[in-house]
C-alpha cells in the first residue's frame, strides 16, 4: 500500500493528472478571491461553470470552432455573475440566497436546455462539439520528468497560470486593486473616497464570471469532450472554501487549489487499490474542509499572537 502510494507520487503520470484537476479549481478560486476582496460573495460560481460548460459545447458544435465556443461559454459565465450582481446590488437581495437560486436554476436549467436541443438529459455526445487544443511546449517537453507533467496539457491549463498573474497584478499593482480592497474593507469609507462600490463589485463579478467560464469550458471541452449533467460537481462551492484557504490572495489560490487537485487525482489512482470508490470520491471535499479549518486555526493563532504583542508593548510603557 505504502509502496503503491510512493510509486504514485513519483510518477509523472500522476502529477500530470494533478495539474489537470487543479486548473479548473484554480480558475474558480481566483474568481472567488477577487469578488470576496470586493466584499461580495459569489456563490453562483457553480452556476456560471455549468452554463459555460453547456454553452461552450453548444456554440462550438454550432459553429465548428472551439474558440467561439470558449468565448460564448465565458459570456454565459459572465451573464450568470451579472444576474447575481443585479439582484444583489440593485435589488438589495441577499447575495448568498441569490447564489443558491442561480445554482438551483443552473443545475436543472442546463439539463432542460440540453434535453430541449438534443433530446438527451445526461450527455451531449450527440453534438459534434470541439475540444480546446493541447499544447506542446518546445524545450520544456524534452525535460525528462517535468516535461511529461507540464507540457502537452490543455490550452486552458496555461491560461490558468496566466490568470493567477493577471489577478495578482489587478489586486496588488493596479489602482483598481486598491479600490477593490477598499470596497471590501469598508463600503462607506470607499464611497467617501469617491469610489463607486457597486461599479467595483460589478467589475469583480465580471472577472469572476470570466474565470468560472474558462473553468466550465475546460470541463466540457478539454477535461472531457462532452457536457454531462452536473459536470461541475461542486467545484464552484469548493472554490468558496478554497478562497478562505488561499487567504484572499492569487498566489495562495495555487496552494488551495492544489490541495483539491492532489486528492482528486489521488482518488483516480486509489480506486485501483480496491478502496471503495464512494469514500474516495468524498475525499477531496473532506480534505477541503480540513484545509479550511487548519488555515483558520493558523490565522487565529497568528492574530492572537499579534494582539498579545500589541498589548504587551502597550503595558510595557
Amino acid at each position: 500500500m505504502l509502496d503503491f502510494i510512493a510509486g504514485v507520487f513519483g510518477s509523472s503520470n500522476y502529477w500530470f493528472i494533478v495539474v489537470r484537476s487543479t486548473a479548473p479549481i484554480l480558475l474558480v478560486t481566483l474568481g472567488a478571491v477577487i469578488t470576496e476582496q470586493a466584499g461580495i460573495k459569489n456563490m453562483a460560481l457553480e452556476g456560471s461553470m455549468l452554463w459555460a460548460a453547456l454553452v461552450g459545447v453548444l456554440a462550438s458544435a454550432a459553429t465548428g470552432s472551439a474558440w467561439i465556443g470558449l468565448l460564448a461559454g465565458m459570456a454565459a459565465g459572465v451573464a450568470i455573475a451579472l444576474v447575481l450582481g443585479i439582484f444583489a446590488l440593485k435589488l438589495d437581495a441577499n447575495a448568498v440566497l441569490v447564489g443558491v437560486a442561480l445554482n438551483l436554476l443552473s443545475t436543472g436549467g442546463t439539463v432542460f436546455t440540453l434535453f430541449s436541443i438534443t433530446g438527451d438529459k445526461g450527455i451531449s455526445s450527440s453534438l459534434a462539439s470541439k475540444t480546446l487544443p493541447v499544447i506542446r511546449i518546445p524545450f520544456l517537453a524534452d525535460v525528462p520528468w517535468l516535461g511529461k507533467v507540464l507540457s502537452g496539457q490543455n490550452f486552458i491549463i496555461y491560461v490558468s497560470i496566466v490568470a493567477v498573474i493577471v489577478v495578482h497584478v489587478i489586486l496588488n499593482k493596479m489602482t483598481i486593486g486598491r479600490r477593490i480592497r477598499a470596497t471590501g474593507e469598508n463600503v462607506d469609507a470607499a464611497r467617501a473616497a469617491g469610489i463607486d462600490p457597486n461599479r467595483i463589485k460589478f467589475f469583480t463579478l465580471v472577472v469572476s464570471g470570466m474565470l468560472a467560464g474558462l473553468a466550465g469550458c475546460f470541463l466540457s471541452m478539454g477535461y472531457t469532450s462532452n457536457f454531462t449533467s452536473g459536470i461541475s460537481a461542486g467545484r464552484g462551492y469548493v472554490a468558496n472554501a478554497a478562497q478562505v484557504v488561499a487567504g484572499g490572495t492569487a498566489v495562495g489560490s495555487i496552494f488551495a487549489a492544489l490541495i483539491f487537485g492532489i486528492t482528486d487525482a489521488m482518488a483516480t489512482f486509489l480506486q485501483n487499490v480496491g478502496l471503495p470508490p464512494e469514500l474516495i470520491q468524498a475525499l477531496p471535499y473532506a480534505v477541503t474542509i480540513v484545509g479550511f479549518i487548519v488555515v483558520t486555526l493558523i490565522r487565529d493563532k497568528r492574530e492572537a499572537a499579534r494582539k498579545l504583542r500589541l498589548f504587551s508593548r502597550g503595558a510595557g510603557r
Binding site: 440593485k90 438589495d92 437581495a93 436543472g108 432542460f112
Partner: peptide
C-alpha cells in the same frame, strides 16, 4: 417533449424574486 427539470428554472425565479428586498 418538455423535460421535468424545467421547474428548477421556475423555482430559481421564485427565490430570486422573494430574496430581493426592493421587490
Amino acid at each position: 417533449d418538455v423535460a421535468f427539470e424545467f421547474i428548477t428554472l421556475l423555482q430559481g425565479m421564485i427565490i430570486l424574486i422573494l430574496a430581493s428586498d426592493k421587490i
